[in-house]
């Protein structure tokens, strides 16, 4: 689905203010806990572990003490034009036309990992092992999200079950609209500095629709045409420049 087709309707998106993000990792823990993400004994094996939301630390490359470092949390970009969807031979991943969110159906996934190869953001993880919740830790699993099995790909769903919960509540109260704060993913709710804002990018009542128009907003690898719905804000030029590949002299610093 192209973004131009999506001028109306609901498009859930996220704005992460990197000036506020302190890299504390609360969003990662909240996400893993909310979505029954399994933990390996060796989580330092970053090619095998699973983290729907991953934090990167980027630096401006200058020597001490001119160094600057910024944390960048990376959930699934929930692209309007997702490269992972058309490559799936099993139709296990698709974009919801009503929300713009890219889903993953675990029981359909055949584990070929084409989608992982297609995703330029490394937002998808493969279950190389059986899910592991040893020593009685399966007792904290939430029934709202099904645990995945070995051999399937999983990814951030913008906490889809929370949308279902909000919809059910609205339906029970005879409403069709869901207010801005009725549906937010676990990471957004958990962020202690309130660096992440979530909402419908098309809805002028939602804060995100204004934030994405900020001159400091940008998206990752925008030139690929994937049209991510996760936006970032940073007043630092070097951070924005790092978000994509620019030719020398092409990126113009703001004065």
């Amino acid at each position: 689905m192209k973004s131009k087709d999506n001028a109306t309707g609901t498009r859930y998106g996220m704005v992460v203010d990197l000036d506020k993000c302190i890299g504390c990792g609360v969003c990662v823990v909240a996400c893993s806990s909310e979505n029954n993400v399994s933990v390996l004994y060796d989580e330092s094996d970053k090619t095998r572990n699973i983290s729907w939301l991953k934090i990167y630390r980027i630096t401006n490359g200058k020597g001490f003490p001119e160094t600057e470092a910024v944390y960048l949390p990376r959930p699934c970009m929930q692209c309007d034009n997702p490269p992972c969807v058309p490559v799936c031979p099993a139709t296990a991943t698709r974009q919801d036309p009503n929300t713009g969110t890219v889903s993953q159906i675990y029981t359909r996934c055949i584990g070929c990992r084409y989608c992982m190869a297609a995703c330029p953001y490394h937002a998808r993880d493969f279950n190389w092992y059986d899910p592991s919740f040893p020593n009685g830790m399966d007792r904290y699993l939430s029934p709202e999200v099904s645990p995945r099995m070995r051999g399937v790909v999983e990814k951030c769903t913008f906490c889809h079950h929370r949308l279902m919960r909000a919809k059910a509540k609205a339906y029970a109260e005879g409403r069709r609209d869901i207010a801005q704060d009725e549906y937010i993913p676990a990471c957004v709710e958990a962020c202690p500095t309130k660096a992440i804002t979530f909402g419908d990018l098309n809805n002028p009542k939602h804060e995100v629709s204004a934030l994405i128009k900020s001159p400091y907003s940008f998206r990752l690898l925008e030139r690929l045409g994937t049209e991510p719905k996760v936006y970032y804000l940073s007043t630092k030029d070097w951070v924005r420049r790092m978000a994509d590949n620019y030719l020398e002299g092409e990126f113009i610093d703001r004065p």
Partner: peptide
Amino acid sequence: RVVKIEGREDYPVNRGGICPLGMA
């Protein structure tokens, strides 16, 4: 069963924010 820990918006100390240790 306890499945999730979240920060309390109404609590005077932290007003919603908690650290990763508390969340786990």
